[in-house]
C-alpha cells in the first residue's frame, strides 16, 4: 500500500516535471525572440541585448530551465508584458472565478449524468434509453462555445430568463466579503442568500455550456456501466432478498457502476479545462480561460507557460484524488 502511494506520487512528480520541460521548451523553440516582443520592434540592438540578459536568454538551455523552474517554485511565474502585471498576480485574481465555474459545470454534468443514467436503465424502457443516448451524443458533439452562444440567444436574448455575459453578480447587489474568493461560497459564509441566488443565476448558463461535454461522456459511461452491472447476477440476488429496486440501485448498482467511471474522470477534467477557455470567452467570464486566449493571441507566453504547468498540476492532482477514491470504493484495489 505504502509502496503504491510512493510510486504513484513519484509518477505524478515526473509527469509535472515533464510538463514543465515541455512548457519551457515551447517558449524557447518558438521562432522570434521573446526579448524583442518586450522591447518592441523599434528598440536598439543594445536595448535588446540588455533585455535578453535581464530575461536570462544568454544562458544555456539547461541553465535557463533551472532559472525558470526555481523561480516558478518561489512564486516568480514571470511577467505578463501584455497586461503589465506579474503572471502570479493575474492568476490569483482570475483563478477563483474559473475554479468556481468549473466546479458548478462538473456538478451539473455529474448530477445530470447520474439522473439520466438511472433513468435510462432503471425501468429498462427502450424509449427513455434511446433519448438519453441521443442526449449523450449531442452533448459530446456540441462545440462548447457554440452551445454557449445558443444558450445566450435562447435564454437571455429571446426568453430573458438568464442574464447576459460580462458579470458574475448584478451591479445592484453588494458583493459578499471575500473569504475564499468564490462568490457563491463567500455569499453562503456571509449568510447572504440573495447574493448566492444571484451568483448562481449568473453561473447557470456558463456552467451548463461548459458542463455539457463532460455530461455527454459521463452519462454515456455511466449508462453503459449501469447496464453491465444490472445484468450481473448479484443484482438478482439482492432483489431476491426482498430489497426494492431503488435501494438495489443506490446501494449496489451505482457504487459498482461508478468504479469504471472514475477512471475517466481525469480525462473529463482535462476536457473541462480546455472547454473553459472557450466558454469563458463567450460569457466574458473574468477567469483564467479568457486570459489564456487573450495571451495566446498577444503571444504573451509567460501566461501560457504558467497555465500549462498549472493545468498539468491540476490534472495530476485530480488523478491522485481519483486514485484515493478508487481505493475507498473498490476493495479489490485496496490490498
Amino acid at each position: 500500500m505504502m509502496q503504491a502511494v510512493v510510486s504513484r506520487l513519484f509518477g505524478s512528480l515526473v509527469a509535472v516535471f515533464g510538463a514543465s520541460i515541455i512548457a519551457f521548451l515551447f517558449l524557447r523553440v518558438l521562432p522570434g525572440n521573446p526579448a524583442r516582443l518586450v522591447v518592441g520592434p523599434l528598440a536598439s540592438e543594445e536595448a535588446l541585448q540588455a533585455q535578453m540578459e535581464r530575461m536570462g536568454l544568454h544562458l544555456s538551455l539547461p541553465d535557463q530551465y533551472w532559472r525558470y523552474i526555481t523561480g516558478f517554485l518561489q512564486g516568480d511565474w514571470g511577467f505578463s508584458y501584455g497586461a503589465g502585471q506579474p503572471v502570479l498576480v493575474q492568476f490569483a485574481n482570475r483563478l477563483p472565478a474559473s475554479i468556481e465555474l468549473g466546479f458548478y459545470a462538473f456538478l451539473f454534468a455529474f448530477l445530470a449524468a447520474v439522473v439520466l443514467g438511472l433513468a435510462a436503465t432503471y425501468r429498462r424502457r427502450p424509449a427513455v434509453d434511446a433519448a438519453v443516448r441521443a442526449l449523450s451524443v449531442f452533448g459530446m458533439g456540441m462545440p462548447p462555445f457554440w452551445l454557449a452562444l445558443i444558450l445566450l440567444v435562447v435564454f437571455h436574448e429571446a426568453l430573458g430568463i438568464f442574464p447576459g455575459p460580462g458579470l458574475q453578480l448584478s451591479r445592484s447587489i453588494e458583493p459578499p466579503p471575500v473569504v475564499t474568493g468564490f462568490i457563491t461560497f463567500d455569499a453562503l459564509i456571509a449568510g447572504d442568500l440573495t447574493a448566492f441566488a444571484d451568483a448562481i443565476h449568473y453561473l447557470f448558463l456558463p456552467a451548463v455550456a461548459l458542463g455539457m461535454l463532460p455530461f455527454g461522456y459521463l452519462v454515456r459511461l455511466l449508462r453503459a456501466n449501469l447496464l453491465d452491472v444490472t445484468n450481473e447476477p448479484f443484482i438478482l440476488v439482492v432483489r431476491s432478498k426482498g430489497i426494492g429496486l431503488w435501494k438495489t440501485f443506490s446501494r449496489h448498482a451505482l457504487p459498482n457502476a461508478f468504479i469504471p467511471t472514475l477512471t475517466a474522470s481525469g480525462m473529463i477534467f482535462a476536457q473541462l479545462l480546455g472547454g473553459s477557455v472557450l466558454v469563458e470567452k463567450v460569457f466574458n467570464w473574468p477567469g483564467i480561460g479568457s486570459l489564456v486566449v487573450d495571451s495566446i493571441l498577444r503571444k504573451d507566453f509567460a501566461v501560457v507557460q504558467a497555465f500549462i504547468i498549472v493545468s498539468a498540476v491540476i490534472y495530476v492532482f485530480v488523478n491522485a484524488i481519483v486514485d484515493v477514491l478508487y481505493g475507498i470504493i473498490d476493495p479489490r484495489i485496496r490490498n
Partner: peptide, 17 residues
Amino acid sequence: MSLIFQDPMTALDPVKT
C-alpha cells in the same frame, strides 16, 4: 422464498463486505 444463484463469482456484490 429466496434464491441461490448459479455463479458464485458474480452472485455477490464485489464492493460490499
